[in-house]
């Protein structure tokens, strides 16, 4: 069986190479690394930009904010200028402070799309800043405690790497296996395989191995080009390989139900979209309904992030790998049954 599986892997690899799958992943990895390194900014401000007009005596509020690092260009000389600037920039808010500092009158000019939470937060922030200008120090009895040692902040562009590893390197197997299966169906070569001693398991394992290889190469290349060599590559490779195996098995089982790539594509894209839901939770951790966390792709995405940007969650990766092994075995069994019944036999 091993000899036959290796023979099949050799053949599947040759076909993959001649389908230019290696070039596809090479070009994608380079393009994505260029995007991450040069096109996506390090920081992206997701809240509105505040613009100011300080009409207090001596402009003490303006001086304080500039000393705190606020860009001087965000200050205007009149209320009308401020209003006009807010009107021009749809992602901005205007804050006008007028009168004596002790009884300062604050006006917030907003676009009308900001949430109540943002405005309340802004209100509290302005009041706190004014207190500092006034020289009033309020006592605070809150303290901050960390579950584990504080990890270094991750820049916005680097934070997208786990998503690309997850969406491209891992999910790639889902589509590539279907391309392989439909090509064999179209050529009829699968019929010739059926009248050989080759079994269903070898057929599946060979294709899965080629896809795992492509996924691991893609992920490694992308991470090297964007993060260099200071990454736990063995852990990354194991996680990508296991995840890729699981996703490939899923793709194989689904594609066995369809006669052509065109028929499969709609359902394939639908399944990929569902598996991509955890990306929403990745950017907004508060968005994590059970239906999303139950998806097998959810822990995979956060597992990739944990390997690339460790936060010290000891045991998480090990338990994730064990979970993936169990899930992959289940999916292998399912794929085996589907492929055996639908691809290895006719007229059933």
């Amino acid at each position: 069986m091993l000899k036959r599986t290796l023979n099949l892997m050799k053949q599947d690899s040759k076909v993959a190479l001649r389908n230019y799958f290696h070039l596809v992943i090479l070009i994608l990895a380079v393009l994505m690394s260029l995007l991450i390194n040069f096109a996506i900014p390090d920081e992206v401000k997701l809240t509105p930009t505040e613009l100011f007009f300080d009409n207090t005596p001596g402009k003490a509020f303006q001086e304080y904010l500039i000393s705190e690092g606020v860009d001087p260009d965000r200050f205007f000389n009149s209320y009308e200028d401020l209003k006009s600037a807010v009107r021009k920039d749809g992602s901005s808010l205007g804050i006008a402070v007028e009168g004596e500092l002790d009884r300062a009158r604050v006006t917030i000019i907003h676009q009308g799309t900001e949430s109540e939470e943002i405005l309340n937060l802004l209100d509290a922030t302005i009041e706190s800043a004014l207190d500092r200008v006034r020289g009033i120090e309020r006592e605070s009895n809150h303290r901050v405690e960390y579950l584990r040692s504080k990890s270094a902040p991750v820049s916005f562009n680097k934070n997208t790497i786990p998503i690309i590893v997850f969406m491209e390197a891992i999910m790639l197997g889902f589509l590539l296996i279907s391309v392989m299966v439909f090509q064999e169906k179209e050529e009829g070569s699968i019929r010739a395989y059926r009248v050989s001693p080759g079994g269903t398991l070898e057929y599946i394992l060979s294709k899965a191995a080629v896809n795992m290889g492509l996924g691991v190469i893609y992920a490694t290349l992308l991470v090297v080009l964007t993060m260099g060599f200071r990454v736990n590559f063995p852990a990354l490779m194991v996680l990508v390989a296991l995840s890729s195996f699981f996703i490939t098995m899923l793709g194989l089982a689904v594609s066995a139900f369809f006669r052509s790539l065109q028929e499969f594509l709609f359902v394939g894209v639908f399944i990929l979209s569902i598996l991509s839901f955890p990306v929403g939770s990745y950017y907004s951790p508060a968005f994590s309904p059970d239906i999303v966390t139950w998806l097998p792709s959810y822990p995979i995405l956060f597992g990739v992030r944990e390997i690339l940007f460790p936060t010290g969650k000891t045991g998480f990766i090990t338990s994730l790998n064990l979970l993936l092994i169990a899930e992959s075995l289940g999916m292998l069994l399912f794929s085996y049954l589907v492929v055996h019944r639908r691809l290895m036999r006719e007229g059933r």
């Binding site: 076909v15 050529e187 070569s189």
Partner: peptide, 10 residues
């Protein structure tokens, strides 16, 4: 087979 079923890429 009557209809040739080969790996065309090989």
């Amino acid at each position: 087979f009557e209809h040739p079923n080969l790996y065309n890429k090989l």
